[in-house]
Amino acid sequence: MAKSKNTQQKVKRQSTGANILIYIILILGGIIMVGPLIWMISTSLKDKMGVFQLPPQWIPNPIRWDAYKRLFSLSEMYAGFKNTIIVSFTVTIIGSITSSVAAFSFAKLRLPFKNTIFLILLIALMVPYPAVMIPQFMIFSKIGWVDTLKPLIVPGLFGNITMIFFLKQYLQSVPDSVIESAKIDGAGYTKIFTSIIFPLIRPAVAAQFILWFMGAWNDYLAPLIYLNSPEKQTLQVVIANLSATYATQTDYPLIMAMSFVALLPVLIIFLIFQKQIIESIALSGTKG
């Protein structure tokens, strides 16, 4: 009896030691993860010369809001924000509706060759964007859409195969009888979708919507290809261009302020919805 208590204590002591070690590792890792971002914020609050001070100051003294003031006098930044907001909201809102409706059809309705069609659509997931970007560019340039936001918006409106796939999986857990009984009650398909299916898949739609929104917000290659004039560019391209310009003037506070402002909206969305986002990502990974 006494001996087993002893070993128990020993095990406990051992695991406390292990836990402390784990905490140290996790905290160190955490510092490496957020350190650069904090450094980015700290740099953005310095003046141009303060950046070159050695040793560096983590908390700038004095704190200068100068970079942010200059930032908001740049018309490119406003244009970038405006265009990115237009693109990412239009694409994700309409595209999510298209995708949910399609997922409902694929999961629950009868249609000859439905599974074959779905499998063909899955090919899209295996085709890398660079393999189709040149013809896509040619198509859009033929119809005069280059240097407009349309090439960034229109393809997304037709839905997103990843989202359809995920929502279809999610709908598989909904029993068919729910839909059959609604049909017997005389409900039309629109009614079934809006009053039964959509409320059921809403959490999955929300999660996929957020992921897609973050992807659309952060997109860089497609805007880079399609947009030329500064007032048409999206935020990511704007900050990349401005950073190249201001790096030659070693205006690092401005560059860091710009980058921070560009990632802030998504960061805020993430911090608000972190629980749902993290859970849905864990789910999509283990189910995928």
């Binding site: 993860m33 971002l37 952060n218 990511q236 690092y252 560059i255 710009m258 980058s259």
Partner: peptide
């Protein structure tokens, strides 16, 4: 910790690349 480790994932790649470009600066980089 999950949230902390996930912040770089959601951060805009363009902004992150700009930041790291500066962080890798030979003389004054982080």
């Amino acid at each position: 910790f999950r949230v902390i480790y996930y912040i770089p994932v959601i951060s805009s790649l363009a902004a992150i690349a700009i930041m790291w470009q500066w962080a890798y600066n030979g003389d004054y980089g982080l």
